[in-house]
């Protein structure tokens, strides 16, 4: 069997004294798209942060392309080929749109060319000289995704990319994720919006109290709608 792009086993993580992940486990093959579903505070964002070593203490195993990352500093983990789009989008206000786009260092060959990125996100091209702090929420979200496509990272961790955005932008983001999937990116989506996530992903992990409580494959979705609704509280 090929090495998975991301393999998490029995992962525990803490913020100071509070224990947020309790034996998280998941496995994502190259080119797959999976989602982490769950209520607020279930540990989905913490899982992404723990992969990058951004939580406090962590224990267990996180392998990126087969490389064990526990004990590595965040920048070294990112350089294994991870592109991270944080929940708060994290656009640097003191940099222009284009400076933000060019900021993350290249971690591997085969990143998207800048023209391709501008073709995918025409709004970003238009606003390239604007300060990061002046962009709209949708533009910031596009930019936060765009800037990690240049670096050659093949594993994208996207946290709540549809949060607080207008339906038309959410629809556009759906097209973007589909396009990225076709390009062979491996994607882990943390999503609140199940209707957005359902058609995009190969597999859904339902997270509760810092661990996976259910895995639903795409073809099992119809049979599990009720169970999912119960877990997600919708």
């Amino acid at each position: 069997m090929a090495t998975p792009a991301l393999e998490i086993r029995d992962l525990h993580a803490w913020y100071g004294e509070s224990h947020v992940l309790h034996g998280m486990a998941l496995e994502v093959a190259h080119g797959e798209v999976v989602t982490l579903l769950g209520r607020n505070g279930a540990g989905r964002t913490s899982t992404l942060r723990a992969v990058l070593g951004l939580t406090g203490r962590r224990a267990g195993s996180v392998k990126v392309n087969g490389v064990e990352t526990t004990g590595m500093p965040p920048h070294a983990i990112a350089r294994l080929g991870i592109g991270y789009c944080p929940e708060e989008r994290g656009i640097f206000a003191s940099l222009t749109c284009e400076q933000n786009l060019m900021l993350p260092p290249v971690v591997a060959e085969g990143g998207m060319a800048i023209e391709e990125i501008y073709a995918m996100f025409p709004q970003i091209a238009e606003r390239r000289a604007s300060p990061g702090g002046r962009l709209s929420g949708g533009e910031q979200q596009m930019l936060a995704i765009a800037r990690i496509l240049r670096t050659g990272a093949k594993l994208l961790l996207l946290d709540e990319i549809t949060e607080g955005l207008a339906p038309v932008i959410v629809q556009r983001l759906g097209q973007v994720v589909t396009a990225l999937r076709e390009r062979g990116f491996t994607i882990v989506l943390v999503e609140q919006n199940f209707r957005f996530a359902a058609p995009l992903a190969d597999r859904h992990y339902v997270v509760e109290r810092g661990q996976v409580v259910k895995v639903v494959r795409k073809d099992e979705l119809a049979a599990n709608t009720e169970v999912l609704n119960e877990y997600l509280g919708v």
């Binding site: 951004l54 965040p74 920048h75 350089r79 640097f92 003191s94 940099l95 993350p104 260092p105 990690i148």
Partner: peptide, 23 residues
Amino acid sequence: KLGNYLRAGTENPKLLQALGVNV
């Protein structure tokens, strides 16, 4: 470019490090 790293690091060092910069 170095200055961009410095300004970004001043704003949000953790995120800059998560993007692969040795902060």
